[in-house]
Amino acid sequence: MKCVFVTVGTTSFDDLIACVLARDCLQTIKSLGYNRLVLQIGRGKVVPEPFSTESFTLDVYRYKDSLKEDLEKADLVISHAGAGSCLETLEKRKPLVVVINEKLMNNHQLELAKQLHKDGHLFYCTCSTLPGLLQSMDLSTLKCFPPGQPEKFSAFLDKVVGLQK
């Protein structure tokens, strides 16, 4: 079972959901050997009907407390540019395609996705370029993502608040 997981975060990204299910994208996903597609759609208005055939399964849900399980089961993650989703996916060492929502003005989330793309950790596109990217991308070119270091923060905090060791 090869699985693609699409996540839009806490708000909605209807264009992405519609785009993934559009004929060209879905065909590409199938042709790449994926046979399961899981959509986390948030509060979106585009609500696809789940189905399951012998060769392909579509699962749809709005929210879960944790995306951990779906991320772990995924072989490819397609995500909005939210920092949380990006970082969680990269930490689980899953190949990631970030899709930019052009309708969000001054989208500050772009800064992170752009930087992580610059550092070679993910692919980066818009809804309109997603089908082409899925077709052409080579997942083996992605660089491994070193984990963050929250322990450095706790050491710093202990010092500045005067906690005794």
Binding site: T11, G84, S85, P150, G162, L163
Partner: peptide, 30 residues
């Protein structure tokens, strides 16, 4: 900086991704 043994913490979680990030920061606090 006053030496102390415990710290009463108020963490502002706000919303969405900010909360996830904040909890990551708190993960390693004693």
């Amino acid at each position: 900086v006053v030496p102390r043994e415990s710290v009463s913490l108020m963490a502002v979680a706000g919303s969405g991704g900010h909360t996830t990030e904040l909890l990551r920061l708190l993960e390693h606090l004693s």
